[in-house]
Amino acid sequence: MTIVIERAAVLSGPPSGEGSDWFDPRAHLGRRGTALLPRAVQLTAAAAAQLNVSGALACESHRRELWACTASFAEHMHDEMDAVVRAESAEALSPARAPYFSVNLLPARVAQDYKIHGRVVTITTPGTGLVDACASAALSLGSGRCDTALVVTTDVGGEVAEGSVALMLHPEGRGTHLTWARGFLPQAVTMRGFERLERLLPPLLAGPDVSLLTALEDAPRHLIEALPDELTEGRPLNAPNGRLLPQAIAVAEACQQRRTTTLFCCSRFGAWAALRLDPGAL
């Protein structure tokens, strides 16, 4: 079965620590019930709202799924909360924010907004989390477990762009077809690991007009040495510390611009994943 990304929305800006704030949650989400949410949760809800999915969610609520991924939300919240606990005590934590030590509350507001009663899953694989989220959603759609899946990617904090990207996936229909491959090449390189990479990667790179995007900032040497030359010559994304947002923005842009694109990403230890996007018929 062909799985397609039907629509994509990007909400992104410079890091909030750099003076003027580009994101006003009230403008995106209204004034009620959002002021105390962590910024990452606000951004995620706002990106999903930008997708205009309400009309497109025609299926029963238990046939909807939501897949979230992030490389930074949990560490960001833990840094903030731990500073309070060490300097004062657990009693000094904000009761409204304390539950957000749990990373899976990142997509909770979106689940509420769109009554998503199927699986709501938070993927935290470093470096490859976006491809894992898209692949997991596609497997669920392909198996008939759900009819619609949203994939949201959010990163905050640090010195690079922050924001959120929302994708809407359907089985068949109009949109960008997606295929993927993934595996792991351990530091003590195994023949099996190398063979898997050599077998599964080339089909995703094949074709004359494939735009190659790479997130290799964290790539370990043993993995770099195993990659085909064409991949190491792909356009690098600025995705430090396993950030997933730059990957998600690139995926959204490839869908919107109808460019055949393969994204390759990896972790510091040797997990690798590739996602190929082929524009379907209009």
Partner: peptide
């Protein structure tokens, strides 16, 4: 463990 298949992390509390 020297694995080579897909490796995922999920954090649903």
């Amino acid at each position: 463990l020297g694995l080579s298949g897909p490796v995922l992390s999920t954090s649903n509390a």
